[in-house]
């Protein structure tokens, strides 16, 4: 098995699963019905994408299924970005987290869908369409909150400021990222400036201020997570841990 490629696929799957799980926590709690439904639909896209990545990873590792990756790994085996395990807090934080990630996600999928790895490019082509709608949703809300009331402006700005240090991890390559850059040209360093331009334009349009920070938060790709991921997995894995091998 190609360990680097496998790790890379798991990285992608973990990002989708953990963000999908976080967003799904809004189900039944959305600020209004339409946005509750929107968030749930988006969560479903992420979880569906996670399944495709895990199914692909399972084909490389004999005896594994997609469920093994989701339900039977510990915190330190997860490789998701730290940003994505951060708590929902309020609607502003949820939007800020998605906004930063959606714009990065679209860029990476655009590269992946034309990369030389056929399996990954097929998944990326499918996911790209869905993420186009995610980008539209989160950036529209950044603008509406930023350009809304004094209260909404203050709260989205606070969320953007607080989550910004985590965005450095998008572009800090893991070994798996380096492998993908060398073998398939999926080069994160080329995406960094593109991401900054797109994000800054939307932030400016929203009458908000682009945060700056000298303290990047890194480690998720290497399995060094905050305690928050433990709480997610406790809920996510409860059934499998309590009743091992149970099925629907």
């Amino acid at each position: 098995m190609n360990k680097d490629l496998h790790n890379y696929i798991i990285q992608l799957g973990d990002n989708s699963l953990i963000l999908g799980h976080r967003i799904s926590e809004w189900c039944g709690h959305g600020p209004v019905l339409e946005q509750d439904i929107a968030l749930t639909n988006i969560a479903l896209d992420h979880v569906g994408q996670a399944r495709m990545y895990y199914q692909l990873a399972a084909t490389m590792e004999p005896g594994k299924t997609e469920d093994d990756y989701a339900y039977l790994r510990t915190v330190t085996e997860y490789k998701n970005l730290l940003l994505l395990e951060q708590e929902n807090k309020d609607f502003g934080y949820t939007i800020a987290r998605s906004f930063y990630y959606d714009q990065f996600h679209l860029l990476i999928l655009r590269v992946l869908k034309s990369c030389g790895n056929k399996d990954l490019s097929e998944i990326a082509a499918q996911a790209y369409k869905e993420v186009s709608y995610h980008c539209r949703f989160s950036s529209d809300w950044v603008k509406r909150l930023g350009d809304g009331t004094e209260e909404s402006h203050r709260r989205i700005q606070r969320a953007l400021d607080e989550f910004f240090p985590y965005t450095a991890e998008f572009f800090a390559p893991s070994e798996a990222d380096n492998y993908m850059a060398g073998k398939y040209g999926v080069d994160l360093s080329k995406l960094s400036s593109q991401w900054s331009v797109i994000v800054e334009n939307i932030v400016r349009e929203a009458t908000l201020t682009m945060p700056t920070t000298p303290y990047p938060q890194l480690g998720g790709k290497q399995g060094r997570h905050s305690e928050k991921l433990g709480f997610i997995l406790t809920e996510l894995q409860y059934m499998q841990r309590t009743y091992p091998n149970s099925t629907w």
């Binding site: 339409e34 946005q35 439904i37 929107a38 639909n41 988006i42 479903l44 896209d45 869905e130 709608y133 539209r136 949703f137």
Partner: peptide
């Protein structure tokens, strides 16, 4: 448009 996301994906 009321919402970009409706009753199904």
């Amino acid at each position: 448009m009321i919402s970009a996301f409706g009753s199904t994906a």
